[in-house]
Design a protein around this nucleic acid. Structure first.
Length: 724
DNA sequence: AATATTCCCGTTTTT
DNA sequence: CGGGAATATT
């Protein structure tokens, strides 16, 4: 191992602790950075990358892989701020692989304009594959096949290899489905997320020249969140590092929470075995949490067996005890949290410094209602939700078809969207005919003059073919322009304009998509539509735009919380079966992973941490008595403070608090102006009146949209004249 | 072909 | 309880 100190004036080592410096200065040979929560890992990694790129070698010899695109973007920015990063490759495994596949498509053996299918589309293809095999989706549900195929690919098992494994009769059926699925994907020039990794891993294994080229190009490799890598990612990292052996892995086995998705914690646990002469750096000083919070978390995780010993310590204040609150039911729990947040905000804590974590998304509902009632602005971290919106997927499908007409899933999605009189029967005939002729449906309707076999619908399909022809001319256009044209040519714009009065969310989302496309074009002026499609298929955080939406409390799952920090944190649902989570008819629980999940959640908190539990919880329509989570018993009692809740108010009493519905509710309608004590002036978008609950979604002057339960919210009608 | 109704089932999720 | 998908109805 060599170390050099001749970096640019030593600035890259400034303000670092000794272990941090050691990690930054390490140059050659395998390096494992075990980074506890809040230990300044990002700082170390970015400085080391900058050091390698500016002092040791050239930026283009450095490859940095992150877990998410967001992390990649942040790392890139931070490295850039430290000096020249131009030419360095920073991205996720998937983005990196997708790029390799585009550039070397011929050599690797993938279609030039391949489409990347998401999970929903993939399930549709699997369904089709099940049918092809003459099986029923009743016995072979798409989600199960999805899971099996995805796991096989993560383990680098091709369809034929998978079939060659020692399988029971049911797995054998899935092996056939896998093979059929691969054929369909091949026909459609489509790749799924797992393919991106598998194709690259396999070509690296088989093509020594290709491997050597890449090894020479990427002489220093950094893999972040190594505890969350799967077998395919592990293979890629190690094949690239073979020879020069400059592989740096960073991560924390205690924060491995994606085992259910194929991540293999062994990858990091066995790093030193895989790479003799590894230098291990432990970052154990925590710069985030108070002593008592850290000590509680540290003691919890000590119960795990599968880990690498670390002793976390903090130089910060003792801080307050970790509060444990046992509430009567889920509603009471939400109310307690909401009230306490209100108190914190009154005491000067900025709402954006507050977060509530839960194990399952379904638990956000009661919290949202309570926060709404108390007039506390919040946002729910929603992951890929944006791209799952129907309107987004629709436009998306148009764009994908115009780039790759073989993309049958997208074609079938748009053929009757907006409705143009091409129904299920017609589509079925079309698909059958195409199969018979051995062509893609798009090809068939574009190249066949006589569509008589479709009966009366033939004319409609002909019209659709004309639309397809018109769309194909857009391929060369920049993304925002193509998007706009697609909107009008397809009739989607007209459709949504018509629906605008009912619900303007789709329109707003489409505007947002357009804004994202424009933004992309601005950033990469030479980019084509294909580039944008790939970017957007891999980058799920368009709603990173909402990052700027500061000033609100954040609600999210424990999984989503990884990597973040908040001053005040609440974790709800500490009950047996919820945290740890237990599937209804499954006895198996990965206790260690569940414990890590709680550990991740707890270590997000800087100053105040509160754990809550409800004695009764309603799930799937039934209220059940719960059992306290065993994890609570594993926490050091000296760091805990058990909070007594006031006797639970009967539910009805709370509901009546605001005298129910506003008196003049009968006069309310979409368009009515209303005022909210915190959010100010707004306009009603939609109203729905239920038997027990009425909802209104309101568009506020500041551009925000919120939905309220009218029985609880302090909304009052404002006359137009009052507004001025 | 489009809409209404019933039925079923229920983690976590980035790419 | 509530959303999505499969099924029944017009």
């Amino acid at each position: 191992m060599t170390t050099r100190t001749d970096d640019v004036g030593g600035t890259l080592l400034e303000g670092l602790t000794n272990p941090q410096r050691e990690a930054v200065r390490h140059v050659d040979g395998p390096l494992l950075i075990l980074a506890g929560p809040g230990s300044g890992k990002t700082r170390v990694v970015t400085r080391r990358a900058a050091y390698l790129a500016s002092v040791v070698t050239k930026p283009w010899h450095v490859l940095a892989i992150t877990f998410t695109n967001k992390a990649a973007r942040e790392m890139e920015e931070r490295i850039a701020a430290l000096g020249s990063s131009e030419g360095m490759t920073v991205g996720t495994f998937h983005a990196f692989c997708a790029r390799l596949l585009r550039i070397h498509h011929e050599r690797i053996g993938v279609p030039r304009n391949f489409t990347i299918v998401d999970r929903d589309d993939r399930r549709k293809v699997i369904k089709a594959a099940v049918a092809t095999c003459g099986l029923s989706t009743d016995n072979y549900p798409a989600p199960v096949g999805d899971h099996i195929i995805s796991n096989a690919k993560s383990e680098l098992h091709t369809a034929s290899q998978f079939a060659g494994l020692d399988l029971d009769w049911q797995q054998k059926a899935y092996a056939r489905i896998y093979a059929a699925y691969e054929q369909l994907m091949l026909d459609m020039d489509a790749l799924d997320f797992d393919d991106l990794l598998m194709k690259v891993a396999l070509v690296l294994q088989r093509d020594a020249d290709f491997r050597a080229d890449l090894q020479d190009r990427y002489r220093y490799i950094l893999i972040d969140e190594y505890q969350d890598t799967n077998t395919a990612q592990y293979a890629i990292a190690n094949l690239l590092a073979e020879g020069h052996n400059n592989l740096c892995a960073t991560g924390d086995p205690d924060q491995s929470i994606y085992g259910w998705r194929g991540a293999n914690i062994e990858n990091i646990l066995a790093f030193e075995r895989d790479h003799p002469d590894t230098v291990v750096v432990r970052l154990e000083q925590n710069f985030r949490s108070t002593k008592r919070i850290l000590s509680a978390a540290d003691q919890l995780i000590a119960a795990n067996i599968q880990r690498k010993e670390k002793s976390l310590w903090s130089d910060l204040d003792e801080g307050a005890a970790v509060r444990v609150v046992e509430c009567e039911d889920g509603g009471g729990e939400a109310e307690w949290v909401s009230r306490d947040i209100a108190r914190q905000i009154r005491d000067g804590v900025p709402p954006s410094d507050v977060a509530v974590f839960y194990r399952v998304n379904a638990m956000s509902r009661s919290l949202e209602e309570a926060l709404l009632r108390d007039g506390i602005a919040y946002q729910v971290a929603r992951g890929v939700e944006f791209y799952n919106r129907k309107e987004i997927k629709d436009v998306w499908a148009y764009l994908r078809v115009l780039v790759n007409p073989s993309d049958d899933v997208s074609l079938l999605r748009i053929i009757n969207t907006p409705t143009r009189g091409i129904g299920a029967t017609t589509v079925k005939r079309l698909v059958a005919k195409a199969e018979e002729a051995g062509v893609r449906p798009a090809q068939l309707i574009l190249e066949t003059d006589d569509l008589g076999f479709l009966g009366r619908s033939g004319a409609k399909v002909k019209e659709f073919a004309e639309l397809l022809r018109a769309l194909r001319l857009l391929v060369e256009k920049p993304a925002p322009n193509a998007l706009a044209e697609v909107m009008s040519l397809s009739g989607l714009r007209a459709m949504y304009n018509q629906e605008l009065l009912l619900d303007d969310a789709p329109r707003a989302n489409l505007d947002e998509l357009h804004a994202a496309a424009s933004q992309f074009q601005l950033e990469y002026p030479d980019a084509t539509l294909v580039d944008w499609l790939e970017h957007a298929a891999l980058v799920s955080d368009i709603d990173g735009i909402h990052d700027e939406e500061r000033g609100t409390v954040t609600l999210m799952t424990l999984h989503a919380a990884k990597g973040l920090e908040f001053s005040v944190v609440y974790i709800v649902g500490l009950e047996e079966g919820m945290l740890p989570f237990r599937r209804r008819d499954e006895e198996y629980v990965d206790w260690e992973e569940e414990r890590r999940l709680l550990f991740v959640g707890m270590t997000r908190a800087k100053h105040r941490l509160t754990l809550l539990r409800a004695k009764y919880r309603m799930l799937r329509g039934m209220t059940e008595r719960t059992v306290r989570s065993p994890f609570l018993g594993e926490l050091p009692s000296e760091e805990l403070e058990w909070v007594l809740t006031e006797a639970a108010q009967p539910w009805g009493a709370r509901a009546k608090k605001n005298n129910g519905l506003p008196p003049d509710i009968a006069e309310w309608q979409p368009g009515t102006l209303v005022r909210h004590p915190q959010l100010g002036l707004g306009q009603i978008l939609t109203l729905s009146r239920g038997v027990r609950r009425s909802h209104a979604s309101v568009h506020f002057k500041n551009g925000k949209r919120e939905t309220f339960v009218l029985e609880f919210a302090d909304l009052e009608r404002v006359d137009f004249d009052d507004v001025g």
